[in-house]
Computed example of a mutant assay.
Amino acid sequence: MTTPTDAPDFLSWPDLANRALAGSVVWASDESFAERENLIRATEPVFDPAEFGNKGKVYDGWETRRRRHDEIGGNDSAIVRLGVPGQIRGIAVDTAWFTGNFPPQIAVYGLTCDDYLTGEQIAALPDSEWTTLVPPTDAQGDHRHHFEIFPAGPAASQRFTHVRLDMIPDGGVARLRVHGRPVPDPRFLGCTLDLAALENGGRITGCSNMFYSRPDHIISLGRARTMGEGWENARRRGEGNDSVTVQLAGEGRIRWIELDTSYFVFNAPGDVKLTGITASGEEIELVAQTAVLPDTRHRFLVSDPAEGESGPTPVVAVRADVYPDGGISRLRVWGELTDAGRQDIESLW
């Protein structure tokens, strides 16, 4: 299925696990020495021989404890949700700076799952759900391992959403790169405008709480790079919930909404609800109250029971309710302007 190579062509394909594309390490069996999130950092791994922390030597990678007892058993694993699902062309596993603590063997498996499951739920799926991308293979310390997916193999044509890296039985890996061809969901293609974007004329008109950061961050350019580049409210101790309202660039028909909790790991909302507000003040349910995950880019198709031949009900604003509180890094509202919405923008121009 795979073959190691010194100068693989697959490196020309984008890294689908890249943090900048909303990739996230959603689960790890253990991260006693170095946290799992380091696996998909965009930078090259670095090493300071004099740097020690409360858990021992500091490594720029993912490192687990030493497996000592029979009751532990098995091997260590980390699961990465790809920022952009796609067909995998090759995988790079880098053990840079891990010399006496690298895993004797590594293996990589792929999964296709479009549901928003927690890391624990993904980890509990049976092995039969996973496709072997890299079978158990001897590893080296301080080395970049390249594995090309054979174009003629069954894995090359499959669309994957997650990969699992196994260290057999334990050790440390600095970086994981998953190069491949993006495969978009056609249901989310075709809309031409983010109606909420600040650059297109969207603006925040209401916010229940902005204790830690400004709510207009969520409609700013690009993706958030840290938690501080999103909207974070205070911890709610009483009843009710927090919300933020965006006045759209113009009246429009909404097709789908992206709500991104990237970098909000322990302070994301438990649930969210998205409501459209018409020019007359009527409220239209766009996305019913639903559970969301930490550190995840969620995409919701809008279901409008009043949708007619011309499309969903036109709205001029969208309110995002978070339950009971919690942070959002970005909010995108994709759709098209109505004639009235376009005229309003033209009049401003």
Score class of each variant (00 low, 15 high):
residue 217 H to Q: 09
residue 299 R to C: 11
residue 94 D to I: 08
residue 151 P to E: 13
residue 97 W to F: 14
residue 338 T to L: 01
residue 309 E to N: 07
residue 116 Y to W: 01
residue 229 E to G: 12
residue 207 C to W: 08
residue 58 V to D: 04
residue 164 R to M: 15
residue 36 R to N: 04
residue 225 R to M: 09
residue 147 F to H: 13
residue 277 I to G: 01
residue 4 P to T: 06
residue 275 T to A: 07
residue 302 V to M: 04
residue 182 P to S: 11
residue 69 H to C: 10
residue 342 R to L: 12
residue 64 T to H: 12
residue 75 N to E: 13
residue 202 G to T: 09
residue 328 I to G: 04
residue 132 T to I: 15
residue 183 V to W: 05
residue 50 A to C: 02
residue 3 T to S: 14
residue 253 R to K: 14
residue 183 V to A: 14
residue 172 G to M: 00
residue 67 R to N: 02
residue 8 P to V: 06
residue 56 G to D: 14
residue 280 S to D: 15
residue 269 P to T: 12
residue 238 G to W: 07
residue 41 R to H: 12
residue 194 D to I: 01
residue 265 V to G: 00
residue 140 Q to F: 15
residue 237 R to G: 12
residue 83 G to V: 08
residue 58 V to K: 14
residue 112 T to P: 00
residue 146 H to W: 12
residue 249 A to T: 13
residue 232 E to W: 00
residue 96 A to V: 07
residue 97 W to E: 05
residue 189 L to N: 06
residue 45 P to F: 07
residue 97 W to K: 06
residue 108 V to G: 02
residue 190 G to L: 11
residue 337 L to A: 06
residue 214 R to V: 10
residue 149 I to K: 09
residue 33 F to A: 03
residue 344 D to V: 01
residue 307 E to V: 02
residue 29 S to P: 03
residue 186 P to W: 10
residue 320 A to H: 11
residue 213 S to K: 02
residue 189 L to Q: 15
residue 293 L to E: 01
residue 290 T to V: 15
residue 209 N to P: 03
residue 102 F to S: 05
residue 307 E to K: 08
residue 276 G to Y: 03
residue 40 I to C: 00
residue 30 D to L: 13
residue 28 A to H: 07
residue 307 E to S: 06
residue 14 P to R: 08
residue 12 S to D: 14
residue 48 D to Q: 10
residue 133 L to D: 03
residue 140 Q to Y: 06
residue 79 I to M: 05
residue 71 E to F: 12
residue 223 R to D: 11
residue 321 D to K: 11
residue 215 P to G: 12
residue 35 E to I: 03
residue 214 R to T: 07
residue 66 R to K: 11
residue 299 R to L: 13
residue 235 R to E: 14
residue 3 T to H: 11
residue 239 E to T: 13
residue 17 A to Y: 05
residue 57 K to C: 03
residue 209 N to S: 10
residue 105 Q to N: 11
residue 202 G to S: 09
residue 113 C to W: 08
residue 298 H to F: 00
residue 208 S to T: 15
residue 141 G to N: 09
residue 336 E to K: 04
residue 314 P to I: 08
residue 183 V to I: 15
residue 348 L to E: 14
residue 233 N to A: 14
residue 13 W to G: 09
residue 44 E to P: 00
residue 311 G to A: 07
residue 303 S to M: 13
residue 306 A to W: 09
residue 103 P to M: 04
residue 66 R to T: 09
residue 196 A to D: 07
residue 232 E to D: 11
residue 339 D to Q: 07
residue 22 A to R: 06
residue 171 G to M: 10
residue 88 I to Y: 03
residue 122 I to R: 10
residue 185 D to F: 02
residue 39 L to Q: 03
residue 9 D to N: 13
residue 294 P to K: 11
residue 268 A to S: 14
residue 247 Q to V: 00
residue 298 H to P: 00
residue 119 G to I: 08
residue 346 E to K: 13
residue 215 P to Y: 02
